[in-house]
Design a protein around this nucleic acid. Structure first.
Length: 216
DNA sequence: ATCCCGAGGG
DNA sequence: CCCTCTGGAT
């Protein structure tokens, strides 16, 4: 069980961020579960607007799972080049598309274990796809920003992603699990940055146990 | 120069 | 646990 004061902090912060940031579907552009899966994979180490810049061309050239499954990896690499890590991402996307065609009739599976078998998909991506494409609130997606927030808010000091996820789930309304990552990422990039956090501009400074650590 | 909206692999 | 993979923003 997470510390209850920290739980209240996280809940208050999420409520504030929910009012401040738009819905996730307005950020990453996607129309189908497959497109969300692709966009989420591409978003590793990359901002939403850069992903949104390449996905229209990618989806136009390879309109569905079957097309990606038959695609030349080098051509996919070219189309997603600007999102970084393009060799890994292209290889994973093609391999995943091939697996979907082979085992799931070209559909994106709607369960955590099935998603985790897809190359390039781990827990964070699976949580986001399940929640936002299928409305299945399987869990909170944890990435570097979310971890940092959980630590700074003293919800937990664990480095175990599964424990961090469970502690967050205990204090975030289940309906927000799919969106929490998005809000926290934006907040983490704009305000509660890894170094030199902009505490003076922080909308939730009053909830922060480290607000005495002033912005320099 | 340095850091980053992950995931796979040693 | 550590490393690698990448371009782009700052």
């Amino acid at each position: 069980m997470p510390d209850t004061a920290a739980s209240r902090r996280i809940a208050s912060i999420l409520a504030t961020l929910a009012a401040r940031y738009p819905a996730p579907e307005t950020m990453l552009h996607w129309r189908t579960p497959w497109e969300l899966l692709v966009a989420t994979v591409l978003s590793a180490q990359c901002t939403d607007d850069r992903v949104n810049k390449v996905t229209p061309g990618l989806f136009a050239r390879f309109p569905d799972v079957a097309a990606v499954a038959a695609a030349d990896v080098a051509e996919v690499e070219e189309l997603i080049h600007s999102t970084g890590f393009f060799r890994n991402k292209a290889k994973h996307l093609v391999a995943t598309a091939q697996l979907l065609v082979r085992r799931y009739a070209g559909q994106v599976p709607q369960s955590m274990p099935a998603l985790l078998e897809l190359p390039g998909v781990a827990r964070k991506t699976a949580n986001i796809v399940l929640a936002n494409a299928f409305g299945i609130q399987a869990g909170v997606a944890v990435d570097t920003h979310v971890k940092r927030l959980a630590w700074r808010m003293e919800l937990t000091h664990s480095k175990d992603v599964l424990k961090i996820e469970r502690d967050l789930m205990a204090c975030i309304p289940q309906a927000d699990w799919g969106r929490a990552n998005h809000w926290l990422v934006l907040f983490g990039r704009e305000v509660c940055t890894a170094r030199a956090p902009r505490c003076r501009a922080c909308p939730v400074a009053s909830h922060c146990p480290r607000r005495d650590v002033a912005e320099k």
